[in-house]
Structures are given as C-alpha cells and as structure tokens.
Amino acid sequence: MDKSRRKFLSTAAAATATATMMATTGHTSDRLGHNPDEMFSVLVDSTACIGCRKCEYACNKTHELADHPPAYFEDQTQLQLGRRPQHDAFTVVNAYEDKGAKEGEAYVKVQCMHCNDPACVSACLVGALTKESHGPVMYDTWKCMGCRYCLVACPFQIPAYEYHDVLTPRVRKCTFCTERLHEGKKPACVEICPNEALVFGTRKEMLDIAYGRISANPQRYQDHVYGEYEIGGTSWLYLARADFQTAGLPLLDNQSPAEITENIQHGLFKSFLPPLALYGLLGLIMHTSGQREKSEESTDA
C-alpha cells in the first residue's frame, strides 16, 4: 500500500515536472529574456531582389543621410563595388555571382542584422547598445563613450563611426526604423521595395514564409534560412540561391559570441573567487617575503 502510494506520488511529480517544462518551452525566451518568435523581423529574399537600390534611397531619405541626388540611386554600377554600410549609408546592395539567376548575379542587401544576442551589445562597456524585446538593436548617443568596441565585436562589420566629426562622433548603423515601427509602419526599405524582396512581420511569420518558399521552390533556394540559427539567430533573415558565403554572408557558428565570451568571463569571476584567490596569493607572497626580510634583518643584526 505504502509502496504504491509512493509510486503514485513520484509519477505525479514527474508529470508535473514535464508539464512545467512544456509550459516553459511554449514561451521560449532566449539568453536575454526575449522571445525571438515575437520579435519584428525582415525576410530578405535575394532571389527576388532586382538591385534597384530603392531601399538605399528610402533609408537615406528617412535617416537624412548622405545628400545624394535621386539619379545616384539609379546608377547600377554601384552594385559592383562591394560596398559596406557607412556612417552615411545604413544599407547597401551588392551584386554577387549567381549562375542560376536570370542576370547571372544576385543582389544582396546589407545592413545591421539585429542579432538576437548581439556581440556589440555584449561588448559595449557602458550599455549604449541594447537589444529591444521587439527586435531592434538600439544605440544611445548619450551613453556612448566612443570606444568603438562594437565595431570590432560585430561579426558582420556593420557599425560605422563618424571619424570625420571631431567633437561629437557617433556610432551609426541601421535602426530598424524604430520610430516608424512605433507608428505602426514598416521599415522604410521594406515599404519601398518594389518587388517585395523584403517582407516584414514577426520572426516566426518570416520563418514560416521562408520555409514555405523553400518547399514551394526547392530548386530556387538553398535549403537554409540564413540568420535562423547563426550566432544565436538574427532578426533579419536571408534566402538565397547560391551559397550564402558567395552572397557575402559570413559562415558563422550557431552559438552567439556574446554567450561564449560572457560564459568565460562570468565563469572566471563567479562568486568573486578568482580575485580572492589572486589577492590571497599576492598576500601570501607579501607575507612570506616580509618574513624572509625580517629573518634576514635579524641575522644581519
């Protein structure tokens, strides 16, 4: 009797534990406590991009960046220059070889990927960069001290620095058009894209669309959504026909660099043990050397 009761209790406990686990997995939150499924996200379908550079134009206009005439954005030779985002251009479109494409090349838009667990946020000493729960990685000019660690930390080499501005230089990068998101609008680049190569919605929706497109057109796409797992996942997701590396997207580990470095550091400094040990060791050395000096003095005397 007693035995069976104990058995019952243990089964019940196991069931409760499983239920709790299932409940927690239902609301997945990442290392930063955000739910990536619910974050805003943009799917970049590089096979649909026609290289019209209107996203560059819209971004430029919205954020009042470099003062280029409209004709500049019609110049398609710019696509061949392998440009990178600058302090005055938060997004650029580059052409890459793609033998399967109609033009023999594919166009890939480059901008901040708004990582789920951003290395720049982790590297920032003063908390000037933050990952918002709804997706954007935001920058606060007033907190920034100009160390540019974020520039070094970013695996996509996105943040740019206003080196030309001696007194009030800022780190500049894509803001995910946060102001527009608050107004219920799409990011400017997504809104202007004529071919809907950019799609905006929640990250879960974007992944569903991405895999829907892959399964509908398996010959058109790599069977992989770039950014789903790379460095812990990104808010901007990419589809491509050719290798993602050919398309200029770096080959990255699934674990975020922020997690790796923070684990090492936090492990080292757990419970303040390493400093205590260090100072203890130093104290011991001081103590023994002091004793030795004393004994030497006494022998001298």
């Binding site: 026609i50 290289g51 019209c52 019609e74 398609q76 033009e103 071919n195 809907e196 919605g201 669309i209």
Partner: peptide
C-alpha cells in the same frame, strides 16, 4: 504575407519576364 501587396504583385509579374529577356531592371 505570402500574397504580395499590389506593388509587389505588379512588379513581380512584369519583372519576372522582363528580367529574363533583356536583363533590364531599370525603373524607367
């Protein structure tokens, strides 16, 4: 979301062929 808006629908419909035939994506 898998059904594009009017702008996307127009452009995809036209560019689907025009891109293939003359490699031309200029808006004008």
């Amino acid at each position: 979301l898998s059904q594009p808006n009017l702008k996307g629908a127009y452009h995809r419909q036209c560019l689907g062929c025009h891109r293939e035939w003359n490699h031309e994506t200029k808006c004008i």
